[in-house]
Design a protein around this nucleic acid. Structure first.
Lengths: 202, 202
DNA sequence: GTGGATATAGTACGGTTGACCTACATAACA
DNA sequence: TGTTATGTAGGTCAACCGTACTATATCCAC
């Protein structure tokens, strides 16, 4: 059994994954069903199950595809400008992205899901690990005096802090209009932290 | 129809709400059902529906009760120590709390739910508004030179940043052991931000 | 152009879900 | 003590769920 080898099948798989992604965003995982995905993709349930025999396989594939988009953009950031500019670009990019409807809706679903489904946790952790890895490289360039351990901690702190804003300045959230201020405060204070991050623990 | 007026009914409602809270944490909202709540509470479905005629009423009441606990503890923080100490206590308390299993599991469910259910959004926003209000009072005490608008922005930035750590240093998350470091970095950098937060926008 | 792989449709099954309704048990109080 | 409000159990219903299976249609290489 090898599905998706004809051009028809390949584009079909793409349609399905897109439909599934959109349904997750629109309706949330608590009413995400195979039948609704099939409807959204414009195909019949039987056909959907030909490509994805089980719901968990579909969800897994859909998450993988969505996450891959984020991974690709992280690499891009590293290719332009000074470390300080890369740092600012990354923060600005992530915060701006998190105000899009897709991201605002998608990530809370991912976070929730990862708390209850083992294999989803793995994929999510891998994505954030890559994110922190890129961020860590930039931070090390900005302040070469930092130890690897310190770089790791700073990457964790900064990336986690940025993610938190999803719930507050995301799409249709109460503070969407403050995005520019948040970006400014984030770059300001996190830059300071990176430059003074080698302060020993009290 | 006025249920929960006898002592039996009152404690029953408490049992139900606790069971519902626990089920949400254990199983996630995507398999949160009236029957499972009834089972967890040790009562029959018909009885559960006597107290909560619809699922949305139950969820709403359960969320309200859980949120109330957080609101109460925020007030407590304001009663001891200098503004700087209050600031540190609040940050430490929130971050420490977010590493508990209950909080780590509960909040992503809340965030996800608030993206899809209108009335849940209202309750969540009220809680965070109160949180920011307390934090804002402390910040204003720490740096009286700040304008109300600046205080508001700082409260938003700091509270949102702290929430983000749930997904990374929460219960059973990959970085749980870094909690102390995160608390240190948070107090350090956010204190700096409050003290230098009146820097004009570039 | 035909045969075998691929894609699509259709149906059926066992289970769960939220809501509704009725009958019975228990508690409070006149 | 009796009667009324409150609490509890149980059954029913239509809708939806994931999965399995079969039958038909379409595609492409030979």
């Amino acid at each position: 059994m090898k599905n998706g080898v004809y051009s028809k099948g390949k584009s079909r798989i793409n349609d399905i994954l897109d439909a599934a992604h959109q349904l997750l965003i629109d309706a949330g995982y608590h009413n995400f069903s195979m039948r609704k995905v099939a409807d959204a993709a414009g195909i019949k349930l039987g056909n959907l199950q030909y490509y994805f025999p089980s719901k968990s396989l579909l969800v897994s594939a859909m998450l993988d595809k969505t996450i891959q988009v984020y991974l690709d953009t992280f690499d891009e950031i590293r290719t332009h400008g000074s470390p300080e500019e890369q740092f600012q670009n990354l923060i600005k990019h992530v915060i701006t992205d998190l105000t899009s409807r897709e991201t605002t809706q998608f990530f809370p679903e991912l976070w929730s899901l990862s708390n209850h489904e083992e294999d989803i946790t793995v994929h999510m952790d891998q994505m954030y690990a890559k994110y922190r890895s890129i961020l860590g490289d930039i931070i090390a360039d900005m302040n070469p005096a930092l130890s690897p351990k310190q770089v790791e901690k700073l990457s964790l702190f900064i990336s986690a802090s940025v993610e938190g804003h999803t719930v507050f300045i995301g799409h249709n959230k109460p503070w969407t209009k403050e995005v520019d201020n948040i970006v400014a405060m984030a770059t300001q204070s996190f830059t300071w932290l990176v430059e003074h991050g080698d302060i020993p623990k009290r």
